[in-house]
Design a protein around this nucleic acid. Structure first.
Lengths: 100, 100
DNA sequence: CATTAATGTTTTCTCAATGTAACATATATA
DNA sequence: TATATATGTTACATTGAGAAAACATTAATG
């Protein structure tokens, strides 16, 4: 197996959690990795990578798997307690760093 | 630019939503794509792909970007109203399709 | 406990995603 | 309205992800 990509601990942990959740959801539905792979248009090896939290998997594959499990809806919604304080109206189209 | 991967409408839509949310979060924080890219260990071109919902980006990059924006925590938690009904205790390690 | 299917694991090959660079365009400020 | 800068966009080379296949291992049933 390829060496997992180097990344911060917290990020890795979050990916592992997501993978575990996906595996639990699959088993609860009594679906084999093979079946989910077919529905998602991928292979069971890639399903295994996802369930183990391998960061080197395309997000498109993740989304396809979530859809195959009926877990897709609302997944793209982010919880942003910090940004929520700010108005969306006057949001600039670009960020400007200095004074220039 | 490379042709976007073929995928179901709903899945594509969810990715676009995620990308938009990431962009909004970035702008609210007044961060340039360049800055976020540096923090996430990638390039601004890839940030652009993420914000446009391109499915062919590694999930590890997504996670790194979410972390750079302070949006990572709890992201791996899935909402599974269907599976929640089922006990975790007697969850099999494998799914079995037929009779056996 | 025997059987058989599901999963783990490795290897090879192909193709596309990413990084790098360069240029065009648009927009946030003074 | 200038102007510096953020972003859009494209091209190219490299590298690694993913598909496919084969074999080993393990767990779920009867």
């Amino acid at each position: 197996m390829a060496v997992p990509i180097k990344m911060p601990r917290a990020a890795r942990k979050e990916l592992v959690t997501l993978g575990e959740n996906i595996r639990v959801a699959r088993l609860r539905r009594k679906l084999t990795a093979e079946i989910v792979a077919q529905r998602a248009g991928t292979t069971r090896q890639t399903i295994a990578k996802i369930e183990s939290g391998n960061p080197a998997v395309k997000i498109g594959t993740y989304v396809a798997v979530l859809q195959a499990l009926g877990l897709l809806k609302g997944w793209g919604d982010l919880d942003d307690p910090v940004g929520e304080q700010m108005a969306l109206d006057d949001l600039p189209q670009r960020a400007r760093l200095r004074n220039g």
